[in-house]
Amino acid sequence: MEKVAKEINWNKLAEGVINGKKISKEDARSILTSSNKDILQLMDAAYQIRHYYFSNKVKLNMIINTKSGLCPEDCGYCSQSIVSEAPIDKYAWLTKEKIVEGAYEAKRRKAGTYCIVASGRKPTDREVNHVIGAVKEIREQTDLKICCCLGFLNENQASRLAEAGVHRYNHNLNTHADHYESICSTHTYEDRVETVNHAKDAGISPCSGAIFGMGETLDQVVDIAFELNRLDADSIPCNFLVAVEKTPLEGTKELTPLQCLKILAMMRFVNPTKEIRISGGREVNLRGLQPLGLYAANSIFVGDYLTTEGQEPTDDWQLIEDLGFEIEECAL
């Protein structure tokens, strides 16, 4: 860490947030630089905010990777990118039947949100039609909420997905605007913001977050949290880098479990009313401190991620039960 935080009464700061007061960037940075010995007090304060808005409910989400690899983008963290030599499965689009089948698996895993994800820069109109066909069938047969993550969207595609019944669109900022060129050169930070706004304008709930541990500074981590607040993202996935072998970021190891907890707490203070989701890298980076993360966050992925493994759903169910929390039932 760079410098020690000023002394702050975390519970008093949380009380102010609950009463509608926004914290400053200085206070947010102080969360990230707080002493490790104060971690329980910090997480307790974050929990006061989390409990006020979400009680002890935990939202479960499940991903299906409908198109793997074959991506022309050069994102340094991604095993599916054109610059990655990671030995992953590569395949074109799954059939509509397979996508619908995945929705029933999401229900079995007690997920309330089913995330249809595809690699690539942006979908063609034909690919959007393929997704829409699956979405309509899933909506007819289940009560799942559906999130799509298909890359960059134009306004027409966003409107058509909304009309088909897509509830949420995920498009992460991934990192700070000033750090973006060191992570990716084939598109810009502004391109990502534009897609988030297209989803919002179409009436789709925006889901956008970041990947932490890629060389960003503490001030940039804070700025990301405030930018997500400005964008009014309803769901904020907090990913912690899994430095996959044979990707440009292979060997990167910047985060400790305690640093991950501080990032989650800071996100909760800055975005008190939003779904904060512990996403990719949860098991690898938080390790034995995973349960503490849910004192700030109110959402997790259940099962595997895109090309990395998660833990068994039964382990997640048990973790939630052991905390005295409960899985949020899917209701529309």
Rank of each mutant, 00 (worst) to 15 (best):
K98F: 00
Y77I: 03
S35G: 03
E85D: 06
A45P: 11
V83Y: 05
K67N: 14
K37H: 03
I18A: 07
I63S: 04
A46Q: 12
N61M: 07
K22N: 15
Y47A: 09
C71F: 02
N61L: 12
G76V: 05
S68D: 09
Q41I: 07
H51P: 00
I63T: 08
I99H: 05
I99G: 04
I8R: 13
N36F: 13
I23H: 04
I82N: 06
Q80R: 02
I18V: 14
Q48C: 03
S55N: 15
D44S: 13
Q48I: 01
V58A: 04
I88S: 03
D74R: 03
T95L: 01
A14M: 05
D44Q: 10
I64W: 00
K90Q: 15
G102F: 08
N56A: 06
H51D: 09
G76N: 08
I82Q: 06
S35A: 08
V58Y: 12
C71D: 08
F54A: 14
V83T: 09
S81C: 06
I64D: 05
N61I: 14
S81P: 09
E7I: 14
K22Q: 14
K21M: 08
M43F: 14
I23G: 04
K12S: 11
T66D: 05
E97I: 00
K59D: 15
S35C: 04
S84P: 03
W93I: 04
I99Q: 02
A45F: 06
K12M: 09
D89P: 02
A92G: 15
A14T: 01
A86L: 05
S79K: 07
K22A: 13
I8W: 11
A45G: 05
A103C: 10
P87L: 06
Y53N: 12
E105Y: 14
G102D: 09
S68F: 04
D89H: 08
H51N: 13
K67P: 13
K37C: 00
K37W: 03
I99V: 13
K21H: 11
L42G: 06
K37N: 02
S79N: 09
I99P: 09
A14E: 07
T33H: 11
D44W: 05
K37Q: 00
L60Q: 12
L60C: 13
Y52I: 08
A92D: 15
V17G: 02
K59R: 15
E101V: 00
T95W: 01
L94F: 10
A106Q: 11
L32G: 03
L40T: 05
S79I: 09
Y104T: 01
K21A: 06
E26Y: 02
K57A: 15
N9D: 15
E85Q: 13
D74E: 08
V58R: 10
N19D: 13
G102H: 12
D74N: 15
A45Q: 12
S81G: 06
L13N: 04
P72D: 07
V17I: 09
A92Q: 15
I88W: 10
S35R: 13
T33A: 08
I64G: 02
Y53V: 12
Q80E: 09
I49W: 01
I39E: 13
Y77Q: 00
Q80N: 01
T66I: 15
D89R: 07
N36G: 11
